Simulated assay, not measured.
Amino acid sequence: MSLAVAETDVADLGSIVAAALAHSPAARTLLADLESRQTVPEDAVRDYYDRNRDRYLTPDALRRGIDPFGRTAPEDFVPYDRAREPITRELQRAAGRRAFFAWFDRARADVEYAAGHEHPGDPGHPDHEHRH
């Protein structure tokens, strides 16, 4: 069986959310909808670009070993106009995931697991720190 969630995303999502997304088309649809409805203010996009200069070095600047937080020239960086759209999508995705996590936490807040079927990392479980 193929997972609908990339293995690399499981660590970011957490195992319970990843399992829900892997096995529930409705959960995947909700996540996609939440991601698409997020609006990211222009100043947040610009702030992200400015604070993460290391992510926007040009290939030439990388080859030359430019320190993005040291002495640089404007041509050492991908121009903001080219980076803006990918940053916006990344921030929308992150905001959508936060909205999904909040919805998921509310949806399972009153769930009571049968004895022996609790999630091992659930702090509500009396033995949640037990490891093998």
Rank of each mutant, 00 (worst) to 15 (best):
D12G: 15
L30M: 11
T29I: 06
T39G: 09
Q38N: 07
E7A: 15
S36N: 05
V40A: 00
E42V: 09
D9K: 02
R28P: 10
A32G: 00
A4E: 11
E42T: 13
R37C: 07
L31H: 01
A4N: 15
A19M: 13
S24Y: 06
V10F: 03
D43N: 15
V40K: 00
A26G: 11
D43W: 11
A22E: 07
P25L: 12
E42S: 13
A11Y: 08
A19L: 15
D33M: 09
D12Q: 14
A11R: 13
H23R: 15
L21F: 08
G14P: 02
A18V: 08
D33C: 06
V5T: 07
S24E: 04
A19Q: 12
A18R: 10
D33L: 14
D9W: 05
V5C: 09
E42M: 10
L21I: 10
A18T: 11
D33A: 13
E35T: 09
G14I: 01
A26R: 13
T39A: 14
H23I: 07
A19P: 02
S36I: 00
A11Q: 15
A11S: 09
S36C: 05
V5A: 05
V17P: 05
R28A: 02
E7V: 11
A27T: 04
R28Y: 04
A22I: 07
D12M: 14
P25M: 04
E35A: 02
R28M: 01
L34D: 05
A18S: 08
A32F: 00
A32N: 01
A20M: 11
L34N: 01
V10M: 03
T8N: 07
D9L: 02
A6P: 13
V10S: 02
A27Y: 09
L30G: 03
L34V: 05
G14M: 00
T29G: 15
L21A: 01
D9N: 05
P25F: 07
P41M: 10
L31N: 01
P41F: 06
A26V: 13
D43C: 05
L30E: 10
E35I: 06
A22D: 09
G14H: 01
H23G: 11
T29N: 14
D43V: 11
L13R: 01
D33I: 10
A27Q: 04
A32T: 02
E7N: 12
D33Q: 14
L34C: 06
T39N: 08
A27E: 03
T29Y: 06
R28C: 01
L13T: 00
A18Y: 08
A19E: 10
T8I: 04
A32I: 03
T29V: 07
D9E: 08
A20E: 10
A27K: 07
G14Y: 02
V5N: 10
S36A: 13
S36T: 01
T29L: 15
L21D: 09
S24R: 10
D43Q: 13
A26N: 07
P25I: 03
V40Y: 00
S36L: 01
V10W: 06
P41E: 12
D12L: 10
S15V: 14
L13V: 01
A19H: 10
G14C: 03
V5W: 05
E42K: 12
L31I: 04
A6G: 13
